[in-house]
Design a protein around this nucleic acid. Sequence first.
RNA 1: GCCGGGAUGGCGGAACUGGUAGACGCACAGGACUCAAAAUCCUGCGACCGCAAGGUCAUGAGAGUUCGAUUCUCUCUCCCGGCACCA
Length: 1166
Amino acid sequence: MVHKPYDHQKVEKKWQDTWYASDAFTAPDHPTKHKAYILDMFPYPSGDGLHVGHPEGYTASDIFSRYLRMQGKNVLHPMGWDAFGLPAENYAIKTGTHPSLTTKQNIATFKRQIQALGFSYDWTRELNTTDPEYYKWTQWIFLKLFEKGLAYEAEAPINWCPKDKTGLANEEVVGGKCDRCGTVVEKKNIRQWLVKITDAKYIERLLNDLDTLDWSTSIKQSQRNWIGKSEGAEIDFTIQPQAHGGQEPNFLILHGYTGRVDKNFIPNLKEQLESQGYVVQTPQLPNTTAPKEVEQVQYVIDNCTIDSSTIIVGHSLGGVVAMKVIQKINQPIAGLVLVAPAVEPEFRTGEERPFWKTFTWDYDYNRIKKFSGFRIVLSDLLEKDERAAYLGYLAKKLDAPVRETTANKSHFRGTNEPFVLHNLLRTIKVFTTRPDTLFGATYMVLSPEHPLVSEITTDEHRKAVEKYQKQASQKSDLDRTDLAKEKTGVFTGAYAINPVNNEKIPVWIADYVLASYGTGAIMAVPAHDERDHAFAKKYELPIVDVIMPHVIDAKNPPRSDKQTLERQSVHAIVHDPKTDRYLCLQWKIFPWTTFVMGGVEAGEDIIEAAKREVKEEAGYTDLHFERVIGGPVRADYFATHKDENRRSIASAVLFTLASDAREEITAKEKAKAEPVWLPLSALKPESMRCSELPFWLDRLEGNFTYSGEGLMIRPALPMSPIPKPVLEVPMSPGAAGHLGNELQRIGYDGPYEGLTSQEFRKAIVGWLEKTGNGKAATNYKLRDWVFSRQRYWGEPIPIVHCPEHGNVAVPEDKLPVLLPDVKKYEPTGTGESPLAGIKDWVNTTCPQCGEPAKRETNTMPQWAGSNWYFLRYCDPHNNKQLADPAKLKAWLPVDTYIGGAEHAVLHLLYARFIYKFLFDIGVVPKEVGDEPFIKLINQGLILAEDGQKMSKSRGNVINPDLIVREYGADSLRMFEMFMGPLQDAKPWNTRGIVGVRRFLEKVWQLQEKVQDGSELHRETHALVKQIGDDIKSFSLNTAVSNFMKWTNAAATWESVSKMEFGTFLTLLSPFAPHLAQELWSQLGHKDQVHAQSWPNFDASKLIAENVEVVVQVNGKVRDKFTVASGISVEDLKAQALGSKKIQPWLGGKTPKKIIVVKGKLVSIVI
RNA sequence: GCCGGGAUGGCGGAACUGGUAGACGCACAGGACUCAAAAUCCUGCGACCGCAAGGUCAUGAGAGUUCGAUUCUCUCUCCCGGCACCA
């Protein structure tokens, strides 16, 4: 029988018509068998039509879907259109064509091209995000977010693309440029809708649930990076206040009814303030159990010093006394702080107090306001409601803020009430991941936008600060984050107090600190942070080492059964500038090279010690001291020659050789070691015996910051004689013991000597929390999602702005809010959408009161529609709800999701968030879990033949239509799979496609060999197994090569049975459905090959009768022979040893060992 | 800088849990068929030495573990992706 030649165009057309006319791949609403939801990322139907990249993922998912159907599963495999977006709108601006028309045309093109490839989509479920029946539910999701407080309106500085004239989400800005058009984005402060993706209820789940997903590590890593969690602490630094004229304030603390100066928070507060150098008066007022106003006020006026720098603090009834004092003295004071002040009669309930009648309860508020520089009211949340009402009333009268807290003891009666202190002194919160370096914080930096900058800046520095702020505001983010640029900043004139040691540290502003991360302020630790170090060097700020690196010698670790000798030592690094070499010792008694080094003797500093050692061991006397390079390094090792463990705490001192002047060295030293001069390149860890070497080399290169973990050194660790010059700036005396005391106070009973930085980090956070100076804190880089676009072609945000009721949701039964027609699509650029110009659309009534109101004119971003489309596929025509829960339960979650990696942090993060939200509000049934995509496969980019990215501008785009016309859809499908692993990027090579085309021709030719029968060759059984395995693991390139191998083998056969060829076609049908179907029907079958069940293989048939065995001698292949596969180990051994080729390699010797891997190899060791 | 991933012939790539490196395809060379060309078929195709049998070297570089390493461990180089004055 002679068949017609393979005419791909005819064959493909014929079967596509059959399939699409009969909705051949429709999924049931309620699967009765095992379900599988196989999803492709739906495309944006651009005007350019399909790209060869599209069919890559679509083919892979189609093969998998067809395979699963043949495995007897119900498969949901849908397709739709993500059709809102900028290109259609930009096209409308240019041509005046309505975007809906362009979109319709583009969809038609895409659909024709996709259908020409024979994909098995369920077209009855096709959806389109621009269809009002669809975006009704996109709007509905927005309303739910709004209802739960997760969508909010704010005027926020956001990324603004000046070309596209719209705001962008952070995720849409890549390297400071607009992801779409590459324009450098600007910061613009406009009214925006934001979605609270950072909400505590979601952010940790978005991060942690990544662990449960079968996604590539790189995508998961991208999401983790983007969420950017860091754990550390928030620490409050108090700012030294300036009273009028820049003077430091003094404090007058007045106790309350039955109070005493040694009660409540007063002693502790006094101590804290005094430890920071302030003058504090705490008068004991007369008659505390039966106080009289006149008596107490007069007592204060007579006995206390009050001047323009005085801040009066009044607790409870003391607050009333304070106000009366101010009314009476007729002179200005710095400020008034009322700590839970006593209550006016009309607010009182309960038992009568003696002072109710001995005090008058009227105030001259204007007078108090006039004479006090500032006023603050502190309120304790533990107290009763009527007091809160009173404090609010009082604060209003005094024009003062009310600051609330939960006091340690109700009514601020605790012995330690840090909230009071923090409100006396302005505090600035910083975030740090390294609270263990707190002792090394030598200055503070605020971002130029920090709200407290102008408040704390002194008059003297105001001009410079404002100038700097202005400059910073004019820089783009791209400029500000340019790492290469030198850091800049200005001093504010203010000082903060480091809470751990009460050091006074300067407060600067600098644009290397970002307002948008953490608290917008940092504590700078120049010894342990590179950025801070660079800044400190430039502005000559102090640098204090607090962490010592610690190395344990890997080759000679300390031994637990040996004694340990600890010693302070010094390494002298002597550089000869004339030869650019370094002085080392070549030891004679050991095979070592070292620097000149030795112990530091009592009373000696390290520089003296280093000089002495150089003189003794090498004789050089004329050394010029350069510097101590960094802090000390501890090394632990076992000293073999001494049979003891050594703990060396070493510092390195750098000298230059000023002249060759030398003294004779002793015979003893001569016998021990010889001085040699080595170039820097010879100073290598493998050639030097020096555990600290990597640190010294690093520091010689100028890297003085150590940001790793280590051991705490002073002042945290008062370790005896640490040589003085180690610290570039010494801390104040007394600081050293401070932490020890504090640690004891919080119940840590040490020993803290030798604490690692990790241990100390925990201890210090405990201390911060205990003392109210800070707390453990977590920070994220993720920002809320900017959700409004000032453009036309998107879903209108269903909100009405009512003058009376604010933002009011459009009622659900009024959805969808239809996108109206406009005449001009041009974005206004003012931050308003083109919709703002349509008066009769904008003007509406408030759904709450019916009064005139205006519609929201911003539209949603493209991600809004793509967030949840995969839910809609389960129930695409439902007009009552987003989707029927029973249908969602039947199909969700998506089992396999295939698409490009470019959506790593955009679509994939947004969709996970929205899915979790829909899960929480019960739309997503709880049985299906709160992760939408269980397995994700990212197909790699198909590059152009030149290895570059395909793009219209480069002119290297391959049009799939041409390939389909010339080689056929089956060739294109198989070739795209054959090119390489699905996940890898790979260049297109049109010449290569002939390989698969030839293969398909061979398959076509094979029908000449078909004869009746049901015999299957061993290769066919093997193929069934291989193809199944390959598809399951998405190793589709090897599947294609396995098909080719099979046809190569079949070409040598006499005949192929009808059964065998049918089996082969069944396996081939997911890959080349048209050809497989055509040959299937030519075999005489009336049904469809894709409806067959997946063939089984007979495992017993896979075993070959004979196997080839390799014989190795010492790991090298020396012989190969074929044996029966069932051969015994003994026989195999004997045959191997007896081989003529092996004999010469054995050389008559008896093998040491013979390793036999059954059916594979014999390895002989001699 | 930090975090991921990778590097195998002229090219795309293959090699299951450590066991014959280079499957399959492209390109290339030689041959058959043809008046000729295309198509098709056959043969060869990592490098070096050798007439051959065969040997030696080869999976980015260098070390290590092992009878045996593309595969495991360490160091380094380069490439790709993500993040990036993120405190």
